[in-house]
Computed example of a mutant assay.
Amino acid sequence: MGTQPPTCTGGCQCGAVRFRVTGRLWDASICHCRMCQKAFGAYYAPLVSTRGLQLEWTRGEPKRFQSSNLVRRGFCADCGTPLTYEAPDGIALAAGAFDEPALLPPSIQYGVEARLPFMDTLPGLPARRTEEDEAAAEFLARIVSRQHPDHDTADWPPPPAA
């Protein structure tokens, strides 16, 4: 892992829910199980355990869905960003919801029986940077992001421009 600060922050896409974790995050994983695929709307769920650390909701709090008899899943009720996996042994946060997800590389994969068969071929796919997509250039030039920045803010959303 890279140099990780003693406190890591993150939140949802719209900024309605923000969190802070105090302590060294070390238990990052990827889960391929079908329940995690559906909860994240993705091929797998990247998660970081907060077990034994201090987790604080600094703005708002997730809405929760009881996805099984033992697990709840937290998400932003405003924008839908997946945020938590809450089991009897602790809470894991969505790795992509952290402000600096590159500091949290996974060290293990779970639920590999449901791993999609093409996952190992992804590195071989053609790749291009966003600005290299000439067909989307006009569309991209018109985008005005409403996504919360990757750092804490005193207020959100910002006041409208004068």
Rank of each mutant, 00 (worst) to 15 (best):
Ser68Phe: 04
Cys14Gly: 03
Ser67Ile: 03
Arg128Gly: 02
Arg64Gly: 01
Ala94Thr: 15
Trp26His: 15
Val48Ser: 01
Arg51Ala: 12
Pro159Met: 09
Pro123His: 08
Ala87Gln: 12
Thr81Phe: 03
Pro105Arg: 12
Thr9Tyr: 14
Ala135Asn: 04
Pro123Trp: 08
Asp99Trp: 06
His148Pro: 02
Pro123Met: 07
Val21Gln: 01
Ala77Cys: 14
Ala39Leu: 00
Pro62Gln: 14
Phe118Val: 13
Ser145Val: 12
Pro105Trp: 11
Gly11Asn: 07
Glu138His: 12
His151Trp: 13
Met1Ala: 13
Tyr44Asp: 09
Asp155Phe: 01
Ala92Arg: 12
Asp99Tyr: 07
Glu86Ile: 03
Pro105Ser: 09
Tyr44Val: 05
Arg51Gly: 04
Thr84Tyr: 01
Gly90Trp: 11
Gly11Glu: 07
Ala102Pro: 00
Thr9Leu: 11
Pro123Leu: 07
Gly111Leu: 07
Asp120Asn: 10
Leu55Met: 07
Met1Glu: 10
Leu53Asn: 11
Pro117Leu: 02
Ala87Asn: 09
Pro82Gln: 04
Arg146His: 14
Asp155Gly: 01
Val48Leu: 01
Arg59Trp: 11
Arg20Pro: 00
Pro106His: 15
Leu103Asp: 01
Ser67Trp: 11
Tyr110Lys: 07
Pro123Asn: 08
Arg73Lys: 10
Asp152Trp: 05
Met1Tyr: 08
Thr7Ile: 15
Gly41Thr: 08
Gly41Asp: 04
Lys63Met: 03
Gly124Arg: 07
Asn69Trp: 00
Ala102Asp: 15
Ala137Phe: 10
Cys14Glu: 02
Ala137Arg: 15
Cys8Asp: 01
Lys63His: 05
Cys8Ile: 00
Arg142Pro: 00
Val21His: 04
Thr9Ile: 08
Pro149Ile: 14
Ser67Asp: 05
Ala92Cys: 05
Phe118Glu: 13
